[in-house]
Simulated scan of single mutants.
Amino acid sequence: MQRAAQRDDRAQRQMRGKRLSRVLVCAAAVPAVLITAACSSDSGDSKSKGADSSARQSAGSSAKPSASASPTVQAAAYQKLPAACAVLSKKTLADLVPNAASSGKKGTSDDPSSRASCSWSSLDNNGVKGSQFRWLNVSLLRFDSDTARGAGDAQAHTYFGQQVKDAEAVDGAKNTKEIPLSGTGTEATAVRYDLKKKEGLFKQQTVVARVENVVITLDYNGAGLAGEKTPDADDLTKAAQQAVKEVVGSVSSANGGSSSGGSSSKAPASPSQSASKSASPSKSPSKSASSSASPSKSAARKS
């Protein structure tokens, strides 16, 4: 019985040992479960934070302003020029250059739609009394609107002022007088002066007029040669002004407008203030204008 009691005691001790081992094994498994749960929780938080960050970046990129619109300038009023040798009627030519050839001498141009000119000369020989000389030249320059240079009429306004200054600064000119003209295009000015040459005393008239984006420069001079009397400057100025009005009408007619030489348009605003239609991409004549001599100087040399 003692041995049986000992066996029972050993059996009980073995059973208690097995139960303790199972408890220790279960206790050791708990931290691993907690660690796994914690990792799973951190992984979810990281994904959530990444999604939030991506959403914020997407919202930020969509909030960026779009590219600014391309700058525009007001389209030029006139897109072409009339034939320079046809801008004056036969009657007007007969009055200004009575013995001129039936057709004038056309100037050369690499772009007739932007730049054109024509000249006429007349020598009325009165025998022993001498002769009356007349020379007439008409030049037209058209400016296109351009995003870099600005509106065509503003460019023309600047060139108009330059032409007037050039006419006033001719070498050897005497008794220079500037006369603002009304009712002739958008703006117009006549500059007249005396120019002494070996042939005689020449009376020079230069009338510069602007109609929208086109500038007209008309040079008209006269002289009494070999004993003939010197022509009256007032008469020449009046004739030149009437001729310019006719040229203004020809420019308007060539572009589908009326042939009237008057205009109530005001001087243009700065190019930066003009913004409506897109500018025409055609070639701007300002480069060829700046490289050529002023008509008034050319007239003085040719006369």
Rank of each mutant, 00 (worst) to 15 (best):
D232I: 13
F160W: 08
A51H: 14
A5G: 04
K297Q: 13
P285L: 05
E178T: 11
A63S: 15
K90A: 01
S284E: 11
R134T: 12
S265D: 14
A100S: 03
V23F: 11
G60T: 12
Q242H: 06
Q2D: 15
A254S: 05
Q204K: 02
L136D: 03
T186V: 07
S250L: 08
K266R: 06
V138I: 13
N255L: 00
K198I: 07
S288P: 04
V30E: 06
A77V: 04
K196Y: 01
G227L: 09
S46A: 15
V33C: 03
G227F: 14
T158L: 08
T147H: 07
R22M: 08
N221V: 12
A156H: 03
G261L: 00
S253W: 00
E168M: 01
A223N: 09
D9W: 02
V97N: 01
S258G: 15
T72G: 00
S270L: 11
T184G: 08
G130H: 05
L93E: 04
L93Y: 01
A84K: 01
T237D: 15
V244F: 06
P65N: 13
V33R: 01
E178P: 02
K198Q: 09
C26R: 02
Q163K: 07
A279W: 04
A77L: 02
V128W: 12
E187K: 06
A100V: 01
P82C: 06
S61P: 03
N175D: 04
R210A: 14
E199V: 10
K297R: 11
D144W: 09
S276N: 04
H157Q: 14
H157D: 15
Q2T: 14
K174E: 14
S66W: 10
T237N: 14
P271S: 09
A190Q: 12
S264C: 05
L140D: 03
S291T: 10
S48N: 10
S139R: 09
A69G: 10
V87Q: 01
D42S: 15
K302G: 04
A27I: 10
